[in-house]
Computed example of a mutant assay.
Amino acid sequence: MDAVVTRSEPAQARLSQPGVWDAEADDTLVCRAVRDETHDVKTFVFSSAEPRRFAHEPGQFLTFAFEIGGDTVNRCYTISSAPTVPDTVAITVKRVLGGPVSNWLHDTVRPGSVVRAMGPMGDFSCFRHPAEKYLLLSGGSGVTPMMAMARTFYDLGEARDVAFIHSARTPADIVFRDELELMARRDELFRFSAVCETDTASERWPGVLGRLSRPALKLLVPDLREREVFVCGPAPYMAAVKQMLSELGFDMARHHEESFDFEALGAEDAEAAIVAEAELDGAATVRTYKVAFARTKREIECPEDMTVLAAARKAGVRLPASCSKGLCGTCKSKLVSGTVEMHHGGGIRQREIDAGLALLCCSKPTSDLVVDR
């Protein structure tokens, strides 16, 4: 009798080995799908090259190392998928005019593309602030961590009262609109509202028009004082929301915001504070070292009690950075020569440190330096 040959479905094979993905062991991710969300927003779905599952908290992010034009560019992106779908992980990216990474992702990454990433990281998560009622407020690309949180509660069938308010330019710019409206129809405890600045030629917005305001907040969420509030979006949006909540008498101990903008090179305010503190604490006994940037041919001075990034900002040298906390890895740079004292928050691996890489946002010089920037 001939042997019976059973063919294995590739999807089944990927689900049959539920080991947890560990970026320290293998940081390779393979793009499995690219999905259009709006006219300028795409979702990129990744899996591990080997069958693995992802363990993350809704709201956390990954730091990617993209190879673009011969250079390695580090960028952070919040995970937009929920941990309830553990076999893949997704990021949702808006095409930014002139943005080298977002445009490269939109134009280049396809199913089968391979990228490298590390993480997950971050403490901006509803899991860290359990409550019976939540208010999720997002503006623009800040929708991604909120979507991960909303999807998680929805998938788990948790009896949680979730109010989700998203601010967009137009109805055409509401990311995940169809899915959010479906969730709201099917789950009586989930409410979704969008605030649009203007209509489009094809759709007159029936909801709140303009920008989020105190009257709109009171109208859409009359019991907001009873909720745990999460906010993510552009810095001006988050500042405006914070002021509104405070003026409405909200307990700001229950207010949580994503503290840095993944798309920005900035965090200048935080760095300015570091610089000011260093200047106030400066004394004649503080040693100063020279820091040379090999590619740009710039040279600065950096006191031993100031981070290289802070000193560069003070001298007008622009370097990529986001969190300024040693978390995201955006400022990761190769030290051609010299040594630093570095206290990071998880944004760099030991093998990278051994290879001479450092996070400039949390590295203070202990000698003269040459940095490959």
Rank of each mutant, 00 (worst) to 15 (best):
P18Q: 14
G19W: 13
V20Y: 15
V20T: 15
V20A: 13
W21K: 03
D22R: 08
D22N: 15
A23N: 03
A23Q: 01
A23D: 04
A23W: 11
E24M: 04
A25N: 08
D27R: 05
T28A: 10
V30M: 08
V30G: 06
C31Q: 05
R32A: 09
R32Q: 12
A33L: 05
A33N: 12
V34M: 05
V34I: 07
R35A: 06
R35W: 05
D36F: 01
E37M: 02
E37C: 02
T38Q: 12
T38Y: 11
T38K: 12
T38F: 13
V41K: 09
F44D: 00
V45C: 03
F46M: 01
F46N: 00
F46V: 01
F46A: 01
F46H: 10
A49R: 13
E50D: 02
P51T: 02
P51A: 04
P51Y: 07
R53P: 00
A55G: 03
H56R: 00
P58I: 04
G59H: 05
G59C: 02
G59P: 03
Q60A: 07
F61P: 00
F64A: 02
F64W: 10
F64D: 00
A65M: 04
F66S: 03
E67D: 13
I68V: 10
I68L: 09
I68Q: 03
G69W: 09
G70C: 09
T72V: 15
T72Q: 14
N74A: 15
N74E: 14
N74H: 15
R75C: 01
C76H: 06
C76T: 06
T78D: 00
S80M: 08
S81G: 12
S81H: 11
S81K: 10
A82H: 06
A82S: 15
P83A: 10
P83Q: 06
P83G: 09
T84V: 07
T84P: 03
V85H: 11
D87Y: 14
D87P: 00
D87E: 14
D87C: 02
T88P: 07
V89S: 13
V89W: 14
A90E: 15
A90R: 09
A90C: 12
I91L: 09
T92K: 05
T92Q: 04
V93N: 06
V93I: 11
V93F: 12
K94G: 04
K94R: 15
R95D: 03
R95P: 00
V96P: 14
G98Y: 11
G98C: 08
G99F: 10
P100N: 14
V101E: 03
S102L: 07
S102R: 09
